[in-house]
Amino acid sequence: MANDPRDLNGQKLNAALLMLGRDRQLRQELVQWLKQAEQRIGYKGSVRDDITGPIIDALHCDADVYEKTLADGTQFQFFYRTKIARDFLLATSETPTHVWEPQTTRLLKYLAAHSDSDVLVGGAYFGDHAVLLGRQLSESGRHVHCFEPNQAQAGMLLSNVALNGLDNLLIRKQGLWDEGSQKLRLDGFDSFANVVQVGAAEEGFETVTIDDYCADQGCHLSLIMLDIEGAELRALQGATQTLRKDRPAIVFEVHRDYVDWSEGLLKTPICVLLSSLGYHIFAVRDFNTNQEMGMLPIELIPADHVYLEGPPHGFNMLAVLDETSLDRSLFKRVENVSPKLLRHKNPALHHPFDGMPGR
């Protein structure tokens, strides 16, 4: 009826929460209260995703910016735009050890420490991994080559480089592809956007291959990290000379929205390519959030023993030429479990073998 006071579609509620969130102090108090509420709500699903997260999201707009400092002193500014920003903001510790994906962060830092050439990060975003690697390599004379075509996030990455006084990150607003001088655009929102090829006259950004970029820069790579929403295969197809010559370790994302793994991971085109070059391939077990893991081992699942059932999801993978180079005190090989660590799912499939962190 016309005078029904109920907000059945939630429009009034969302507008009210956004208005509350325009007061920074009030927003901070509300966020802190919701963090406390997460510890008290009894719920079988994900409290963050289903209950507190949507409320916190409604307090924000895309222009809201936060600053946060890690335990090692690394400083970050970031837009509140995706789950990455939300979960970083809601980290249990006021000074967490990482921004996103704890085990992947530790893996990247390990691989960078045990090599002697440059690092390339495709999908550098605001620097959640790239800035940490830049700080780690700042005294070594090595560089981190960053590719981020999202203009707003590339600008934030530049700010974070300056904020941390780094001079060894090289930032390109190009897309990594198997052909150079092509035109792409981003389709989707922020970190969820995938690339779409467009005509030369349309708006977009240019592509470059890793092979051409390395030849132009005269650089060698010991580590490649790719999180580019389905363009990972095309980027590696444009890097075959570099892979044969430099033999870098590779950390890359796969997602069922872009990768058909119905016949197993090893039969996907990206794993076929890497296997043909002699790489050993593993899925990395990790939380897709900010979650302190302490010194729990980084669990790696051989690509032919990964549990892949469930709704569409993605996870990171590792490709190395010599699997014996992975320190056994830090890494643990496991089989027939999911790479997705999830607190609210079946412990036999989704919890670390050595126990859930924080318990």
Rank of each mutant, 00 (worst) to 15 (best):
D4T: 15
P5T: 15
D7Q: 08
L8W: 12
N9L: 09
Q11E: 09
K12C: 00
N14C: 03
A16N: 07
L18E: 06
L18C: 09
R22Q: 14
Q25A: 14
Q25C: 11
W33Q: 15
L34S: 04
Q36N: 15
A37V: 13
Q39G: 04
G42H: 03
G42R: 07
S46W: 02
D50K: 13
D50N: 12
I51N: 10
T52F: 01
G53R: 08
P54H: 02
I56S: 03
D57S: 08
L59H: 02
H60W: 02
C61N: 13
D62L: 14
A63S: 11
A63E: 11
K68T: 03
L70H: 01
A71S: 12
D72T: 06
Q77T: 11
Q77V: 11
T82C: 10
K83T: 14
I84Y: 08
R86A: 10
T95S: 12
T95E: 10
T97I: 00
V99A: 07
E101W: 04
P102M: 05
P102D: 06
K109F: 04
H114N: 15
H114Q: 14
S117W: 00
D118K: 06
V119Y: 02
G123S: 03
A124Y: 00
Y125A: 12
H129M: 15
V131W: 00
L133N: 11
L133S: 14
G141D: 02
C146R: 13
E148A: 07
Q151F: 05
Q153F: 05
A154P: 03
G155C: 03
N160P: 03
V161M: 11
A162G: 07
A162W: 00
L163Q: 09
W177I: 03
K183E: 03
L184A: 12
L184S: 06
F189N: 11
D190W: 08
S191T: 05
F192M: 14
N194R: 12
V195H: 01
V195M: 07
G199I: 05
A200H: 07
A201C: 09
E202R: 14
E203L: 13
E203Y: 07
G204H: 06
F205A: 05
Y213K: 08
C214G: 07
D216V: 09
H220E: 12
L223A: 02
I228W: 08
I228F: 08
I228T: 05
E232C: 06
L233V: 02
Q237K: 02
G238W: 00
Q241H: 14
T242L: 00
L243R: 00
K245W: 00
D246V: 12
A249N: 07
I250A: 10
E253N: 09
V254T: 15
Y258I: 08
Y258N: 05
S262M: 03
L265Y: 04
L266V: 12
K267C: 05
T268D: 00
S275P: 01
A283W: 00
A283K: 10
V284G: 09
R285Y: 02
R285G: 11
N288P: 04
N290M: 06
N290G: 13
L296H: 09
L296R: 14
L296S: 15
I298A: 12
Y307K: 13
L308F: 02
E309T: 13
G310P: 04
G314F: 05
F315M: 08
L321K: 14
T324P: 01
S325E: 10
V337S: 06
L341S: 08
L342W: 04
L342H: 08
H344A: 02
K345C: 12
K345G: 01
H351K: 10
P352M: 05
D354L: 10
P357D: 01
G358F: 01
